[in-house]
Amino acid sequence: MSTTRPYPPPGEPGPEAEGAASPVTPPPAGQVRRLRLVGVSGAVPRSRDFARQALQDWGWLPAATADHRAAAEDVLLVVSELVTNACLHADGPEELRVSCAGKVLRLEVVDLGAGQPAPRTPHRAGRPGGHGMFIVQRLCLDWGVVRHDGRPGKTVWAELAAPA
Protein backbone atom coordinates (compact mmCIF):
# COMPACT_ATOMS: atom_id res chain seq x y z
CA MET A 1 0.00 0.00 0.00
CA SER A 2 1.12 3.53 -0.61
CA THR A 3 3.08 5.27 2.07
CA THR A 4 4.78 7.74 -0.24
CA ARG A 5 2.20 10.54 -0.22
CA PRO A 6 -1.17 11.39 1.27
CA TYR A 7 -4.13 10.24 -0.75
CA PRO A 8 -7.21 12.29 -1.53
CA PRO A 9 -10.71 11.37 -0.39
CA PRO A 10 -12.78 8.96 -2.50
CA GLY A 11 -14.15 10.46 -5.70
CA GLU A 12 -11.45 13.13 -5.84
CA PRO A 13 -8.66 12.50 -8.35
CA GLY A 14 -5.17 12.37 -6.95
CA PRO A 15 -2.24 14.56 -7.93
CA GLU A 16 -0.64 14.19 -11.34
CA ALA A 17 2.30 11.86 -11.66
CA GLU A 18 5.56 13.57 -12.52
CA GLY A 19 6.83 12.79 -15.97
CA ALA A 20 3.67 11.02 -17.14
CA ALA A 21 2.20 11.92 -20.50
CA SER A 22 -1.16 13.59 -21.11
CA PRO A 23 -4.18 11.47 -21.95
CA VAL A 24 -5.19 11.37 -25.59
CA THR A 25 -8.47 13.23 -25.04
CA PRO A 26 -8.98 14.44 -21.50
CA PRO A 27 -12.48 14.10 -20.08
CA PRO A 28 -14.34 17.20 -18.93
CA ALA A 29 -12.74 18.62 -15.78
CA GLY A 30 -13.91 16.94 -12.62
CA GLN A 31 -15.79 14.16 -14.38
CA VAL A 32 -16.11 10.98 -12.33
CA ARG A 33 -17.92 8.06 -13.95
CA ARG A 34 -19.77 5.82 -11.50
CA LEU A 35 -21.12 2.30 -11.88
CA ARG A 36 -23.36 0.94 -9.11
CA LEU A 37 -22.58 -2.72 -8.46
CA VAL A 38 -24.78 -3.62 -5.48
CA GLY A 39 -26.49 -6.94 -6.15
CA VAL A 40 -25.23 -7.10 -9.74
CA SER A 41 -24.30 -10.47 -11.16
CA GLY A 42 -21.23 -10.49 -13.38
CA ALA A 43 -19.68 -7.49 -11.60
CA VAL A 44 -16.21 -8.07 -13.06
CA PRO A 45 -17.14 -8.19 -16.77
CA ARG A 46 -19.66 -5.37 -16.28
CA SER A 47 -16.95 -3.25 -14.63
CA ARG A 48 -14.48 -3.97 -17.45
CA ASP A 49 -17.09 -3.00 -20.05
CA PHE A 50 -17.83 0.21 -18.15
CA ALA A 51 -14.13 1.12 -17.93
CA ARG A 52 -13.59 0.18 -21.59
CA GLN A 53 -16.40 2.57 -22.61
CA ALA A 54 -14.79 5.39 -20.62
CA LEU A 55 -11.46 4.70 -22.33
CA GLN A 56 -13.18 4.79 -25.72
CA ASP A 57 -14.92 8.06 -24.90
CA TRP A 58 -11.61 9.58 -23.78
CA GLY A 59 -9.77 8.46 -26.93
CA TRP A 60 -7.59 5.74 -25.36
CA LEU A 61 -9.34 3.10 -27.47
CA PRO A 62 -9.05 2.08 -30.18
CA ALA A 63 -5.38 2.38 -29.40
CA ALA A 64 -3.21 4.22 -31.90
CA THR A 65 0.04 2.61 -30.73
CA ALA A 66 1.24 -0.45 -28.85
CA ASP A 67 1.96 1.77 -25.81
CA HIS A 68 -1.61 3.11 -25.83
CA ARG A 69 -2.97 -0.43 -26.15
CA ALA A 70 -0.79 -1.60 -23.23
CA ALA A 71 -1.95 1.34 -21.08
CA ALA A 72 -5.61 0.53 -21.78
CA GLU A 73 -5.06 -3.18 -21.08
CA ASP A 74 -3.39 -2.29 -17.77
CA VAL A 75 -6.43 -0.22 -16.77
CA LEU A 76 -8.81 -3.07 -17.59
CA LEU A 77 -6.66 -5.58 -15.72
CA VAL A 78 -6.52 -3.39 -12.61
CA VAL A 79 -10.32 -2.90 -12.76
CA SER A 80 -10.70 -6.70 -12.90
CA GLU A 81 -8.36 -7.25 -9.98
CA LEU A 82 -9.91 -4.60 -7.72
CA VAL A 83 -13.49 -5.71 -8.39
CA THR A 84 -12.57 -9.40 -8.04
CA ASN A 85 -10.87 -8.65 -4.73
CA ALA A 86 -14.06 -6.93 -3.48
CA CYS A 87 -16.14 -9.91 -4.65
CA LEU A 88 -13.92 -12.48 -2.94
CA HIS A 89 -12.93 -10.69 0.26
CA ALA A 90 -15.35 -7.83 0.96
CA ASP A 91 -18.92 -9.09 0.43
CA GLY A 92 -18.97 -7.63 -3.07
CA PRO A 93 -18.38 -4.19 -4.55
CA GLU A 94 -20.83 -1.32 -4.11
CA GLU A 95 -19.50 1.02 -6.78
CA LEU A 96 -16.74 1.49 -9.35
CA ARG A 97 -15.52 5.03 -10.04
CA VAL A 98 -13.32 5.98 -12.98
CA SER A 99 -11.82 9.43 -13.42
CA CYS A 100 -8.99 10.99 -15.36
CA ALA A 101 -7.32 14.22 -14.33
CA GLY A 102 -4.37 15.47 -16.29
CA LYS A 103 -1.85 12.69 -16.52
CA VAL A 104 -3.44 10.20 -14.12
CA LEU A 105 -6.37 7.82 -14.43
CA ARG A 106 -7.89 6.92 -11.05
CA LEU A 107 -9.92 3.81 -10.28
CA GLU A 108 -11.90 3.40 -7.06
CA VAL A 109 -13.86 0.39 -5.82
CA VAL A 110 -16.16 0.95 -2.85
CA ASP A 111 -17.11 -2.07 -0.71
CA LEU A 112 -18.48 -2.91 2.74
CA GLY A 113 -15.57 -5.13 3.77
CA ALA A 114 -13.52 -4.67 6.92
CA GLY A 115 -10.38 -6.32 5.56
CA GLN A 116 -7.20 -4.59 4.52
CA PRO A 117 -6.10 -5.50 0.98
CA ALA A 118 -2.38 -6.11 0.62
CA PRO A 119 -0.13 -7.99 -1.77
CA ARG A 120 0.70 -11.43 -0.42
CA THR A 121 4.23 -11.69 0.79
CA PRO A 122 6.22 -13.43 -0.20
CA HIS A 123 4.71 -13.36 -3.67
CA ARG A 124 4.83 -16.82 -5.23
CA ALA A 125 4.48 -16.38 -8.97
CA GLY A 126 4.11 -20.08 -9.71
CA ARG A 127 1.13 -20.66 -7.44
CA PRO A 128 -2.49 -20.14 -8.47
CA GLY A 129 -4.43 -17.31 -6.83
CA GLY A 130 -3.35 -14.49 -4.58
CA HIS A 131 -1.83 -12.30 -7.29
CA GLY A 132 -4.46 -9.53 -7.49
CA MET A 133 -2.99 -6.86 -5.24
CA PHE A 134 0.54 -7.74 -6.36
CA ILE A 135 -0.59 -6.97 -9.93
CA VAL A 136 -2.20 -3.72 -8.79
CA GLN A 137 0.98 -2.72 -6.97
CA ARG A 138 3.15 -3.49 -10.01
CA LEU A 139 0.99 -1.75 -12.63
CA CYS A 140 -0.05 1.37 -10.75
CA LEU A 141 1.71 4.60 -9.92
CA ASP A 142 0.15 4.39 -6.47
CA TRP A 143 -2.73 2.74 -4.63
CA GLY A 144 -4.28 2.79 -1.19
CA VAL A 145 -7.32 2.36 1.02
CA VAL A 146 -9.64 4.98 2.50
CA ARG A 147 -11.87 3.89 5.40
CA HIS A 148 -15.42 5.25 5.54
CA ASP A 149 -16.17 7.42 8.57
CA GLY A 150 -19.12 6.28 10.62
CA ARG A 151 -20.05 3.29 8.49
CA PRO A 152 -18.56 -0.04 7.51
CA GLY A 153 -16.48 -0.41 4.41
CA LYS A 154 -13.73 1.25 2.47
CA THR A 155 -12.65 2.56 -0.89
CA VAL A 156 -9.67 0.90 -2.57
CA TRP A 157 -8.13 3.27 -5.09
CA ALA A 158 -5.42 2.92 -7.71
CA GLU A 159 -3.83 5.39 -10.10
CA LEU A 160 -2.29 4.66 -13.49
CA ALA A 161 -0.40 6.89 -15.88
CA ALA A 162 -2.21 8.08 -18.97
CA PRO A 163 -0.66 6.83 -22.22
CA ALA A 164 2.12 8.82 -23.83
Rank of each mutant, 00 (worst) to 15 (best):
E94C: 11
V145Q: 09
D91K: 08
G113E: 09
G132V: 01
A21K: 08
P128E: 12
E12I: 12
T3L: 14
A51Q: 02
P117A: 12
R33P: 02
L88R: 15
R97M: 08
A162M: 13
E94N: 13
A90M: 12
E73N: 11
A162D: 04
L55E: 03
Q137H: 15
Q116A: 12
L55R: 03
A51R: 09
P45C: 09
G129R: 15
H148S: 04
V78H: 05
W58K: 05
E73P: 01
P13L: 00
E18A: 13
G113F: 08
E12V: 15
A20H: 04
V156R: 08
L61N: 02
A64D: 01
H89K: 09
H89L: 11
H131P: 08
T65M: 03
Q116Y: 10
C87S: 14
A51W: 01
A54R: 15
L37S: 07
S22T: 06
G153C: 12
L105F: 07
P117R: 10
G129E: 14
L112N: 13
P128L: 08
A118L: 13
R97L: 13
Q56I: 14
S2Q: 09
K154T: 11
R120H: 06
L107H: 00
A118Y: 07
G130N: 11
V136R: 06
G19S: 09
A101M: 04
M133T: 06
C100M: 05
D67G: 00
A17P: 07
G92Q: 15
L82Y: 06
L139S: 02
W157N: 05
V109L: 05
T84E: 14
M133F: 13
V136H: 10
L55Q: 09
A164N: 09
L61A: 03
G59P: 01
A51K: 03
L96D: 01
R124S: 04
P119G: 13
P122E: 01
L96Q: 10
P128G: 07
W157I: 03
S47E: 13
A164Q: 13
I135D: 11
S2D: 14
A118W: 11
G42T: 10
R52P: 10
W157Y: 14
T4V: 10
P62S: 04
L61C: 02
L35T: 02
V136S: 04
W60C: 13
K154P: 07
E94L: 09
D111S: 12
Q53G: 07
S80G: 13
E81N: 07
G150W: 10
G153A: 03
P152E: 02
P15V: 14
A64S: 06
A20N: 05
Q31H: 06
P27Y: 01
Q31T: 15
E18V: 13
G14F: 11
L105Y: 06
H89W: 14
H68N: 11
Y7E: 05
I135M: 07
G19E: 04
L141T: 04
T25S: 03
L96P: 08
P28D: 10
R5E: 12
S2L: 09
A101C: 05
D57K: 00
T25N: 03
D111K: 06
A86S: 14
E159D: 15
W157T: 09
M1E: 07
R34V: 08
D67S: 03
A158E: 03
L88N: 15
D142P: 00
W143V: 02
